[in-house]
Computed example of a mutant assay.
Amino acid sequence: MAHIVGIHGIWNNRSARAQMHEEWLAAITRGLKNVRSAHTDTLTFESAFYGHEYNDGKASDDPHYTEADLDEGFETEFAEAMAATLPDETDGHKGGRDALIRLVNCDLAEGVMSRLVGFIKQVRRYLEDDEFRRLVHAEVSNAMETRPQVVIGHSLGSVIAYDWLQRNRPDEPPALITIGSPLGYETIRKQLHQPMDRSRWPDGARTWTNIAAGLDPVALVKDLAPLFHPDIEDLPCTNRLPNPHSALQYLDNVWTSKRIDKALS
């Protein structure tokens, strides 16, 4: 049995399961120590690691991506949706490539165009490639056999966690914690639901807490309760620059630690 299952987000195709396990467990443990959790010394963690599945020559983090590589359809719509949530939106043409420029200028993907396009392509592949999604869900299913009390999904991992918990109902539903989540975007929600059912509680979750940092450019839609279900607890947090989207910053944040402690008690 593992107390927590963690599902990572984008840009992990050059990482490894052992690295994720070490880094996530250390961050979670630090946070639990800060809140004097009784579970600090007994905590067990299972990684739902799928990053290696991107290393098959398809969309990942090609260092040569430019704005010209942004495809029409989901990729353009997602870029425009993210750019539309930025402050001080100006009038004028707001096409997909203009949206990319605005997102790069706000330091999404560390201000690197190739990483931004790669991020969008990784999200698209999970949502539209049925075979790839099957591989990811198989990894999550294997991790969930440990019967966790908590599932934590970061970034794209929050989309995967939500999607898996919609389709599966564990005998003992876990508490769901989403961190740095892009689930607030309509372009993503419409890929997960039927057109008339874009607001839904995942039946496989006992509770749902969503934590979004004020400066996180991926979780620009901070509150999920108005979009999915009023029982979601939306909590703000503050992550440090230059990478406020960092999973490790979220994992030892006081709100994450308190919600983990509560779920394990």
Rank of each mutant, 00 (worst) to 15 (best):
N253R: 03
E139N: 13
A68H: 14
P226R: 10
Q249A: 14
N34S: 14
I179D: 08
E186Y: 13
T238M: 12
H3R: 03
R206E: 13
T66W: 00
F132L: 05
H193Q: 06
P242M: 03
G95A: 04
V140P: 01
Q249K: 10
A16H: 14
V140C: 08
R200L: 09
G31T: 00
K121R: 12
L241N: 11
G92S: 05
H193G: 13
A16I: 00
P173C: 06
A213W: 07
E172H: 14
T40R: 11
E139H: 13
M144S: 05
A79Y: 08
Y185H: 15
L227W: 00
N13W: 09
A38N: 14
R17N: 12
S265T: 15
L86N: 09
E186R: 15
T178M: 06
P87R: 06
W208T: 01
L176I: 01
R206T: 07
A83W: 02
K222H: 15
R240V: 10
L183W: 04
D71Y: 11
S199C: 05
Y126G: 08
S181D: 05
G9E: 08
C237E: 11
R189W: 02
M113E: 13
Y126P: 05
H52D: 14
H93G: 09
A48T: 00
D130R: 09
A84K: 10
V254P: 06
